[in-house]
C-alpha cells in the first residue's frame, strides 16, 4: 500500500481549503496531488454525480485534482465528500458523495455542487461517470469509457478505444484516433475528425452528424433523427448508415472503388451513380470506380421512412 502512503502525504501538504461567502453560499476549493506509489497510474476512475468533471492529459506521472465544492452553508459543505481510492495495481478511483446529515435537515441536491478538474498522465485509461454535469476529456492516449445521464460529453484529442454513453447529454467527439463507440438515447452525437479503425454511433431520438470521418468500419444508426455524414471511404471499408424515420445525407470522398447500396422511402443519388435503379430486392445499387468487386468499399444507406441523399465529393 505504498500508493496510499504517498497519496495521504500529498493530500496533507497541498490541500489549501478556503471558504469564502458568495451570493450562492460557500465555495471550498482544494487541490491535491496523487503521486504514483511505485507503479505508474494506469487507470483513473471518476464517479461524480454532483457536478462537472474535466480530465486533461499531460506528460507528468501524478494526478492533480482540483475540487470545487459549492454549498449553501457550512453544514451542507461538510456533507460533501470526495474520496480517493488508490490501488497498488496502478488504478486510482475518485468518488464524490454526500454523507447523511446528522440532523433531519434535508439538503436538496440542486443546492450543492462538486466540480472536479483532474490532470492525469496521458497514458492512463479513463473511466468516468457523471450525472447532469459536463464531462470533458482532453488529450488522453489510452481511451476510456465515459457515461453521463443528462450532462454533455465532450472529448477532444483522444487515442485508444473510446466509448461514450449518455441518456440525454449531447456527445461531441473531435480528433479521435482510436476506435469510437458512442451511444445516446435522446440527444445528438457530433463527430469531427475521427480516424480510428472503427466508428460506431447509435442514437434513439437525436441526430448524428459526422465530418472528416475516415474509418474502415463505420456504423451509424438512429431510430428517429437525421444522420449527416461527410466521410472518406477507405479501401475495403464498410459503412452502414441507417435510420428508421430520419433522413440520411452522406457525402463521400473516395480513393478507390466503392459499391453503394441504398434502400429508402425516397432517395436522391445525384449524378454520380448514373442510372442506378432499384433491383427486385428493393435495393438500389451503384458502383463508383473501376474495380467494383475487388477492393471496393461498401456503403450501405437506408432509411425506412426517410429520405436518403448521396453525393460524391470529387
Amino acid at each position: 500500500m505504498k500508493a496510499a502512503g504517498c497519496l495521504v502525504l500529498a493530500l496533507a501538504l497541498v490541500k489549501t481549503a478556503s471558504a469564502q461567502p458568495k451570493n450562492t453560499g460557500l465555495v471550498e476549493r482544494a487541490r491535491l496531488e496523487v503521486a504514483p506509489g511505485g507503479r505508474p497510474i494506469k487507470q483513473l476512475t471518476i464517479e461524480n454525480p454532483l457536478g462537472d468533471v474535466k480530465i486533461e492529459g499531460y506528460d507528468g506521472q501524478s494526478i492533480m485534482i482540483e475540487t470545487t465544492k459549492t454549498a449553501p452553508d457550512e453544514d451542507a459543505l461538510d456533507r460533501l465528500r470526495v474520496s480517493l481510492i488508490p490501488n497498488p495495481d496502478g488504478t486510482v478511483r475518485i468518488l464524490t458523495t454526500a454523507d447523511g446529515g446528522k440532523e433531519v435537515k434535508t439538503l436538496a441536491r440542486a443546492a450543492v455542487k462538486i466540480d472536479l478538474v483532474v490532470r492525469a498522465p496521458r497514458d492512463a485509461r479513463i473511466d468516468a461517470a457523471v450525472s447532469a454535469g459536463k464531462l470533458e476529456v482532453i488529450n488522453m492516449d489510452a481511451g476510456g469509457e465515459l457515461d453521463t445521464a443528462s450532462g454533455p460529453i465532450s472529448v477532444r484529442n483522444i487515442a485508444g478505444e473510446l466509448s461514450t454513453h449518455s441518456i440525454s447529454g449531447t456527445t461531441t467527439i473531435a480528433q479521435a484516433f482510436g476506435s469510437v463507440d458512442a451511444q445516446t438515447i435522446a440527444s445528438d452525437v457530433e463527430l469531427d475528425t475521427i480516424g480510428g479503425e472503427r466508428l460506431v454511433a447509435s442514437v434513439s431520438r437525436g441526430k448524428i452528424a459526422g465530418r472528416r470521418v475516415r474509418a474502415r468500419d463505420v456504423q451509424l444508426t438512429t431510430t428517429e433523427g437525421k444522420i449527416t455524414l461527410e466521410a472518406e471511404a477507405p479501401l475495403r471499408g464498410r459503412m452502414v448508415i441507417a435510420s428508421l424515420r430520419g433522413d440520411v445525407d452522406v457525402k463521400l470522398r473516395r480513393h478507390g472503388p466503392v459499391t453503394v447500396r441504398v434502400r429508402a422511402a425516397r432517395l436522391d443519388l445525384g449524378s454520380s451513380l448514373g442510372a442506378a435503379r432499384p433491383g427486385p430486392d428493393g435495393w438500389v445499387e451503384g458502383h463508383l470506380g473501376v474495380k467494383p468487386q475487388a477492393q471496393a468499399a461498401i456503403v450501405e444507406l437506408r432509411s425506412r421512412y426517410g429520405f436518403v441523399q448521396f453525393a460524391v465529393i470529387e
Binding site: 493530500l11 470526495v82 474520496s83 480517493l84 481510492i85 478511483r93 458523495t97 447523511g100
Partner: peptide, 11 residues
C-alpha cells in the same frame, strides 16, 4: 468502502 472517506453503508 474507500479508505479516506468511506461510502456510507445503506443506513
Amino acid at each position: 468502502a474507500p479508505a479516506p472517506a468511506p461510502v456510507p453503508e445503506p443506513g
